[in-house]
Amino acid sequence: MIAIECRDVVKRFKSVTALDHMDLTVEKNGIFGLLGPNGAGKTTLIRILTGLITPTSGTCRVMGTDVGDTDSDHRFGIGYLSQDPKYYPWMTGRELLFFVGRLFGMPLADIRKRADELLAMAGLSQAADRKIGGYSGGMVQRLGIAQALFHQPEILFLDEPVSALDPIGRKEVLEFIASLGEGMSVCMSTHILADVERICSSVAIMDEGKVKLVGRTEELLAGVSGGMSLISFASAADAEKMGAQLDLQGVPHVLEADRIRIAADLFEEHRGVILRSAADGKLRLSTITRERADLEEVFVDLIQGGRTYGKR
């Protein structure tokens, strides 16, 4: 079941190519993270997928419908929250949801019920009758998500939903997004790697208008040949001695009190020398662990063109 399908999509703004022959396929259900540095083309892609702009060439389908179709009924299936949502500041949170419900032509009884449900889900029941102008950034974003969910869309697009928020607001909004669960499809763009790792079941990494990598988050992390090995000793003196040995061998490492951090692939390469040195020097090794690579490594290496990815 496909939620998003883009084929050979190009979008040019005068001399700037925002999307450059981009292909992408996203499965239905779950939270999909669209990751990339600023200017990668994430917002442009979301704007195309929500029908706000049209691609220069190529095709995009969302939930089986060509986004080029101007049939407005298609919009019933899409919810969208922009990066920095602006609402009438004189409206209350509840009034905004009623306004959106009426724009969707919903009956008043349904609007009332749905507004109560979503205000509760967004943790805004207490603030429902306060003016939006007095809301915090996190409250506005949560209200924005509630607004985007109001008509029960099949897919929700969130453009950088937490990038402008303080840590508390970020946590609240991410928890709200995560609570949407597997029952619906969510496409969220961000440049904050930790957020994607935290809540996204699958991810695409974009750069220079192209999708560089796409897959399930766990699979991407498992496929990284990087990561660090951490060698712990019984004492800082033992760690220092091992550090000296590694210096002699010319193996780059970082000494951290009673631990030595070394790139996992270098550890594999020098494993024999390291273990032999420990035995010869009677150094008391406690543990050797491998730290899981994080998405930041995948991202930075991919964008900077460092490593090649392969299964370990």
Partner: peptide, 14 residues
């Protein structure tokens, strides 16, 4: 300019 047109355009109103 404010971006508030977005939630109007993502409703089934042309």
């Amino acid at each position: 300019e404010r971006g508030s047109i977005v939630y109007l355009l993502t409703t089934p109103n042309s």
